[in-house]
């Protein structure tokens, strides 16, 4: 299908972009890589009256380390972050998870911030942000604020971003995952939406596990590093039930919970 008509604006600065958002609010949509949004426009799942294109804004195109976090600007593509020479050293978990995001062809245009803004429950980057305890940097005409990952994603395709706010960057804490990390997902085809995705990192005496594709947002489990096998199994069992799951054309809720029970121990042992 084809998108419904909309106006298209390419601002020359972040200031102009947030002015447009202040003016148009919920009628506006921000487009960066467009790898989620364009599909939704084509399917007419969203029908904005104005599209604000930030993909060519130089001030949002940086990857750098700032205040203890790898900060990724809103126009940085997934392919560019994957090719960043410092990625493995600074954000080893992202280096593991990023090759699972979409396909080669969609990573070339899809942005890191865009995937987090889209907030698909099975996406790898929102899971990564939650697992690493990252944050999202938002800007509006009124000023800037940072929102922690656990407060940012509020449900299926729903976030704490206000209609007049632009995500300018996301921040992944430096070095989380350096002690140990693991990631795996089950999908019909590599690059498709995960049915279930599981990531884990070892952090100062505990193992943190995040699961995508089961609940309406990534879920988090914290395990003591030294616990017994039986305790760990029970914690994963409780976690799977707590996540719940949903039935769709690809898998039943029961199957999703079972994937959590099977994948989590493998990924935990990779991270431990």
């Amino acid at each position: 299908m084809k998108p419904k008509s909309f106006a298209y604006v390419r601002p020359d600065s972040v200031e102009e972009a947030v002015d447009l958002l202040a003016q148009h609010g919920e009628d506006a949509r921000i487009i960066a890589g467009g790898q989620s949004l364009m599909a939704m426009l084509n399917l007419r799942l969203v029908e904005p009256s104005i599209l604000v294109d930030i993909s060519q804004l130089k001030e949002l195109s940086e990857i750098g380390v700032r205040d203890g976090a790898v900060e990724v600007g809103a126009s940085v593509t997934q392919a560019r972050l994957l090719a960043w020479p410092e990625l493995k050293a600074r954000a080893p978990f992202i280096a593991l998870a990023l090759p699972w995001v979409g396909h080669f062809q969609t990573r070339n245009r899809g942005t890191v911030c865009g995937s987090i803004a889209h907030a698909d429950p099975s996406s790898e980057l929102p899971l990564s942000l939650r697992l690493l305890g990252g944050e999202v940097v938002l800007r509006s005409k009124k000023g800037s604020r940072k929102v922690k990952a656990e407060a940012f994603q509020q449900g299926l395709l729903t976030t704490a971003r206000r209609p007049d706010e632009l995500i300018t960057a996301v921040r992944f804490p430096v070095g989380v995952g350096a002690e140990g990390a693991g990631f795996r997902e089950v999908a019909r085809r590599h690059g498709d939406f995960a049915i279930v995705a599981v990531g884990a990192v070892k952090v100062a005496g505990s193992i943190r596990v995040a699961v995508g594709g089961v609940a309406d947002r990534p879920g988090l489990l914290e395990l003591p590093a030294g616990g017994s096998e039986a305790e760990r199994r029970q914690a994963i069992e409780d976690f799977a039930w707590e996540l719940g799951g949903y039935d769709d054309i690809h898998a039943s809720a029961r199957y999703r919970r079972d994937l959590v029970r099977r994948l989590a121990p493998i990924i935990i042992s990779e991270a431990a």
């Binding site: 298209y8 467009g34 790898q35 364009m38 599909a39 084509n42 599209l51 294109d53 993909s55 392919a79 080669f104 062809q105 969609t106 070339n108 245009r109």
Partner: peptide, 19 residues
């Protein structure tokens, strides 16, 4: 529909002509 834009493979159905 994959084409190359500035030397990089991407989907032309997920790109606007004006972009």
């Amino acid at each position: 529909c994959t084409v190359m834009i500035d030397g990089v493979a991407c989907r032309s159905c997920l790109t606007l002509a004006v972009q």
